[in-house]
C-alpha cells in the first residue's frame, strides 16, 4: 500500500503543481521519485512533528495542497494540538497521512502503536477520516481526498498487502461492498479487511456467506448503507484494530443507538488496554480474538443462531 501511495501521489503531483509533500523524517527511499521530480515541493521537516504540521498548514494557508507524512502514532497523537488548531480549525487542505496504523509496528512497542488514531482524528470538526485496506483503495481514494480541499486523515499500511476484489469501486464517504451475502454482515476499516476476507474464504467453503463491507471512510460514516444493511441482516459484526472508544465500533454503535438498530451488533477488536509484550501483529490479533479464525468463529455462531 505504501508503494501505491507514493506512486499515486507522484502521479497526482505531476498533474497538479500545487501539491507538496512534508515528511517528519520518515519514508526512506519511498518518496525518492517525488523528491527528484519536484524539488522544493518535497520537504523534510525533521524529527519535528509539530513543525511538520506547521509547514503543511502554513503552506496550505497560502494555496498549497499539502500532505504531511509520518508513522501513524507520530502523525496524530504527537502533534494533535497542531492538527486541531492549525489544520482543522482553519479548515485547511492538508492531508495527514499516518503510516502503519493499528498494530502494524506491534513489535516496536507502544510508542509505535496507533490504535487510537481514528478516535483522535474523528474528534476533530472538519476532518475527514479514511483508512484504506489495499493498494487499489488508496489509489482510488487519494485523488478524492485532494478534491475535498479540506483537512483529511488517511492511513497507509505496509509494503505488499494483496489487493482484493470488490463488488464496487472505492467512493469517499461510501461503504464499499467487497462480498455479497446474507444474514450476517462483517464490516471493517483499514487493512483488517484482508483478515476479514481470509475468514470469508473459510466460511464460504462451509456454505456460510456473509456480506463483507469495507468502511474505508470512518468519518463521515456512511449511515445510509448501514441503515439498509441492518434491515437485511440479523447480525452486524464490526471488526476493528482500534481501542473500543472512538473508532469504527464506537461510530456504528453510536449511530445504532440513535436510529434504533433492528439487528444484533457485535464487536471484535482489542480491549481498552495498551498492547504490551511486543507480540507480532498476527499473534496480537489472535490473543485479542480479532484474527481471521476469531472472525470466522464469531460469524459461524451468528449464522447458526
Amino acid at each position: 500500500m505504501r508503494k501505491a501511495f507514493s506512486e499515486t501521489l507522484t502521479r497526482l503531483a505531476a498533474a497538479d503543481p500545487r501539491i507538496a509533500f512534508v515528511t517528519g523524517d520518515l519514508g526512506f527511499q519511498v518518496f525518492d521519485e517525488f523528491e527528484n521530480s519536484f524539488p522544493g515541493r518535497y520537504i523534510n521537516a525533521g524529527v519535528a512533528e509539530a513543525q511538520m504540521i506547521y509547514t503543511a498548514a502554513g503552506m496550505a494557508s497560502e494555496g498549497w495542497k499539502t500532505v504531511a507524512y509520518s508513522i501513524a502514532s507520530f502523525a496524530t497523537a504527537r502533534p494533535f494540538e497542531q492538527i486541531r488548531y492549525c489544520v482543522a480549525y482553519p479548515n485547511l487542505p492538508v492531508i495527514l497521512v499516518g503510516a502503519g496504523r493499528g498494530y502494524l509496528y506491534s513489535t516496536s512497542g507502544v510508542s509505535h502503536h496507533a490504535a487510537d488514531d481514528l478516535a483522535l482524528m474523528s474528534a476533530l470538526p472538519n476532518m475527514t477520516v479514511v483508512a484504506p485496506g489495499d493498494p487499489c483503495e488508496i489509489e482510488q481514494l487519494l485523488p478524492q481526498l485532494f478534491a475535498l480541499n479540506g483537512p483529511a486523515y488517511c492511513t497507509v499500511g505496509r509494503f505488499g498487502e494483496p489487493s482484493y476484489l470488490a463488488e464496487e469501486p472505492a467512493v469517499l464517504g461510501k461503504a464499499r461492498l467487497l462480498r455479497k451475502g446474507e444474514k450476517v454482515a462483517i464490516i471493517g476499516t483499514g487493512e483488517i479487511a484482508n483478515e476479514i476476507l481470509k475468514a470469508y474464504d473459510v466460511l464460504t467453503a462451509e456454505g456460510i456467506t456473509p456480506f463483507v463491507y469495507q468502511m474505508h471512510t470512518v468519518k463521515p460514516l456512511d449511515t445510509a448503507t448501514l441503515g439498509e444493511l441492518s434491515q437485511k441482516v440479523e447480525t452486524l459484526i464490526v471488526v476493528e484494530e482500534h481501542v473500543p472508544y472512538g473508532g469504527m465500533w464506537s461510530a456504528v454503535a453510536d449511530w445504532g443507538v440513535r436510529e434504533g438498530l433492528p439487528c444484533r451488533l457485535l464487536r471484535l477488536g482489542p480491549p481498552d488496554s495498551f498492547a504490551l509484550g511486543n507480540l507480532k501483529q498476527n499473534e496480537l490479533r489472535k490473543r485479542w480474538k480479532f484474527d481471521a479464525t476469531a472472525i470466522a468463529d464469531a460469524c459461524r455462531t451468528a449464522w447458526r443462531r
Partner: peptide
Amino acid sequence: HGLGMATGKAYGLRLD
C-alpha cells in the same frame, strides 16, 4: 503556533 505557521507561509510564498 505563530512562528510555525509563519515558517510554512514563508516557505510556501518563496516557493511561489
